[in-house]
Write a protein that binds this DNA or RNA. Sequence first.
DNA 1: ATCCCGAGGG
DNA 2: CCCTCTGGAT
Length: 210
Amino acid sequence: MTPAQRQQLFERLAQANPHPTTELIWHTPFQLLLAVLLSAQSTDVGVNRVTAPLFPTLQTPQDLLTLGLATFEEAIRTLGLYRTKSRHAIEMAKILVDQHEGQVPETQVELEALPGVGRKTANVVLNTLYGHPTIAVDTHVFRVANRTGLARGTTPLAVEQALLRAVPAPFLQHAHHWLILQGRHICLARAPRCGICPIQDLCDTGKIHV
DNA sequence: ATCCCGAGGG
DNA sequence: CCCTCTGGAT
């Protein structure tokens, strides 16, 4: 894909979504961190479903410690991976209270040191919470980048590095969410909706068929 | 049967 | 590299 085509690709995604943001519902920094941790192998709709009744009284890491492991497990049970996620969330809250004065850290290293927080989650937090020009590569971004030919790679890290080179600078800030929304609503995993895709003519796969 | 804003452990 | 964690949606 040529630089001009990449520019055009993001111009169209930007036009379709002028103010892209996460579809997770949150109000405090800790809630965003917790919601992203819960989103692993789960849909945002599912995460919002379990956090809606929880978040009014769960705003800080201390609130989660007060709630306790058993109650939290029960509250997120329908998400899947609930035991691992609950354990990580509680351990994460302890570290935030003990070592970060209850605040969400702003560096990749500090974030990835938290239980349950890997590179993808750290990138989402840095971008969404602090406005860093990071690109978190999740299942959607990975699929869209490889399918379109925007940036190819066999691992999430390789795709992330390819995207950082392929995305025109003015679009870096919101590239993550534009690609996510494209993957979630248009470039679906099983049945991509090429008929309504705004970048179909720029896409390597879209030209071929589907 | 496959996928969903993955991470940690072996 | 592989495996496991986990339930709901399609």
